[in-house]
Computed example of a mutant assay.
Amino acid sequence: MAGAVAYEEQRRRQVEENRRKLDQLKLHHLSAALRDAAAAPRPSPAKSAKRKPRGPPPADAPPRRSGRVASLPEQPNYRFEDTYADIKKSIRGSRTHSTRTDLIDRVYATEEARTHATDKAEQLQAKLDPSHPSFVKPMTQSHVTGGFWLGLPKQFCTKHLPKRDEWITLVDEKGAESDSYYLVRKWGLSAQWKAFAINHKLVDGDCLVFERIHQTRFKVHIFRQSSYYE
């Protein structure tokens, strides 16, 4: 018990000695000052910097332009009225060359007219010689305008068409012949199909029956979507 009392007394004297030394060094005052300084908000250097007022440019100063367009002869025209006039002029000029790729020359078939032409084609196909393989192909815009690409049924191609790229002869109902190049890897007609489509005035909604009368020779039966209105 006496040892515990002596230990507590020694501890009390040590604490008082440490407090006296801290008071001499004034460390607690320095700690409080640092804590207050860290808590105080600091003004932003960017906000504290004063910007010089910018006056109007001289009357003879050139307009400011980026380096990318500074060398161009004149500034671009962003007025819609002028741009629209240029577009109309371009369209009028392109129509003088009789091109079917112009969007304003396209024909958009109704679902009724499209179905009418397809039904007529399927009725004819049912009457054809079974020894002549055939398929029905309705026309869309990509077949008769723009890209002029005619994809063929894959199953028909693998079963009845050559295993390599080859010219295919198309014979219309009047006996006129034209050639088109068959691409075996894409299962479709590419080169010269455009000429066939234009010469026969094919439009969106028309429907064709391709009847193979020889290994690389097809008779093409054309059914017009416009016949729906007749």
Rank of each mutant, 00 (worst) to 15 (best):
R92H: 01
K194Y: 07
V209L: 09
D102V: 01
E122P: 00
A117F: 01
P162L: 13
S98V: 11
G175T: 05
D129V: 12
A113E: 14
K120V: 01
G188F: 06
D102Q: 04
T96K: 13
A121M: 05
K89Q: 11
W193E: 11
R92V: 06
A109G: 13
K89R: 09
D105G: 02
I213F: 04
A195I: 11
A121V: 06
A117V: 06
V136D: 05
D179L: 08
I87T: 08
V184D: 11
V220F: 05
D179P: 00
Q155I: 11
F156T: 14
V184S: 09
L161K: 10
G93D: 14
R114W: 09
I213A: 12
A113N: 07
S180A: 15
H132S: 14
D102R: 03
R106P: 01
V209R: 05
V107G: 00
R100I: 00
Q141A: 13
K89L: 05
P138L: 04
Y108S: 11
S98Q: 14
D179E: 12
L189H: 07
Q123V: 12
T115D: 07
F223A: 04
V107Q: 03
Y228S: 02
H160G: 04
E111R: 11
E166N: 12
F210T: 10
I104T: 03
Q225V: 06
E166H: 15
S190H: 15
I87Q: 05
S227R: 05
K201G: 01
E111N: 08
W167R: 13
E177W: 00
I104E: 02
L124T: 02
D105N: 12
V220I: 13
G146A: 08
T99W: 01
V220N: 04
I213Y: 08
L161Q: 12
S227W: 10
H160V: 10
K174R: 10
V203H: 09
K120A: 15
D179W: 02
V203S: 08
R92M: 00
R95G: 01
D172P: 08
V171S: 02
D206A: 04
S98E: 12
D86G: 03
K186Q: 14
A117K: 07
P130D: 06
E173D: 11
N199W: 05
T115K: 09
S178H: 09
A126F: 01
L161I: 05
R217P: 00
I104N: 01
E166C: 10
G146D: 02
K89G: 00
E173M: 08
F148G: 09
I168H: 13
H200E: 06
K219P: 01
Q125A: 15
D105P: 00
G151I: 02
F148R: 04
W193S: 09
V184M: 10
G205I: 10
I168R: 13
T118V: 15
A176Y: 08
L152D: 10
D204V: 08
K120F: 00
W193M: 11
P138M: 02
H221N: 03
M139F: 03
C207S: 15
I198H: 04
D102A: 10
E173P: 00
A197S: 15
C207R: 03
W193R: 11
K201W: 01
I87W: 04
S90D: 14
Y108N: 09
P162T: 12
L161H: 10
L170H: 06
K154N: 13
R212P: 00
K201V: 02
A191Y: 11
Q125T: 10
D86F: 07
A197K: 05
A191W: 14
G93S: 07
Q215D: 14
T145G: 00
K154H: 11
